[in-house]
Design a binder for these strands. Structure first.
Lengths: 134, 134
DNA sequence: GATAAAATGAGAATAATTATCATTCTCAAA
DNA sequence: TTTGAGAATGATAATTATTCTCATTTTATC
């Protein structure tokens, strides 16, 4: 049985490219946008490879996947410390935030339950000041 | 606080049915399973109506949507206090937990940033004791 | 260099969700 | 009670996101 957990990632040209684009853009890119940007630099890269690279990079903890408002995934390079997102339900604006308290509480819970934590995803939804009702 | 966004929901027979099934099952049902269960009680209910009902119920804060491991949504009735989920990446087991500390930190952040909070979704991924590598 | 394993590209296939549209239901005003 | 407007529904088509297949290419190992 393979322990995908500790598999060192093989950083191929395509995976490197995907990671580089994510790191440079510092935005929450989705697979399709990533594909566009990748093609702009590399005539031949398949959307399937984008997805496969993202899966491998995520497995290696180099990228994080998020589910913001819409029903497709967004990705960003894993930064330390982790941060979280608030998405405005009306205008889609994203506000990022960090919270040592949240991370602490999560770690305490995982330790107590003997859970090995790979990924933390805290997503808030609501209305930003401009969109909240009077 | 009554707001423009959360118009009072019109609890039609179909929406009531969807909500009842969720409340009775106390599980994390996906749209398709919900459709099966609904059809078992009501000869005529469309999958589209399931989705529309879920959207309306979510808007009314009566149900919560989650993105657990697989790439489709799961739903459960909104319970108070909110709870969160840890999903094992290998076996899919779900461990629920509550955390006043997390909720407190979230509320402090939203107050400070003048954000109106509608939904909190904290999802942890990793390996459960049975699946974590030696 | 030979060979096995892994990664890739292209596009088909699948799954999840949303859109369309004709019909039905709800409810307030006449 | 009728009626008319707007909302909800059912059936299904359409769209979107993601995964799969398979032939080919690249990389790692001997």
């Amino acid at each position: 049985m393979k322990t995908a957990q500790n598999a060192p990632i093989h950083l191929t040209r395509q995976r490197r490219l995907v990671l580089d684009i994510l790191r440079e853009s510092k935005e929450h890119l989705d697979a399709d946008t990533l594909h566009q940007k990748a093609k702009a630099r590399n005539a031949k890269i398949s959307l399937a490879t984008i997805y496969r690279s993202l899966a491998a990079l995520r497995e290696a903890r180099l990228v994080q996947e998020h589910r913001l408002g819409d029903n497709h995934a967004h990705f960003e390079p894993a930064r330390d410390p982790l941060h979280h997102h608030f998405t405005c339900l009306k205008c889609g604006r994203i506000v990022e935030f960090r919270s040592p308290q949240v991370m602490k509480a999560v770690r305490v819970f995982c330790t107590r339950e003997k859970l090995e934590l790979v990924d933390v995803r805290l997503e808030l939804h609501g209305y930003c000041p401009a969109c909240r009702p009077a």
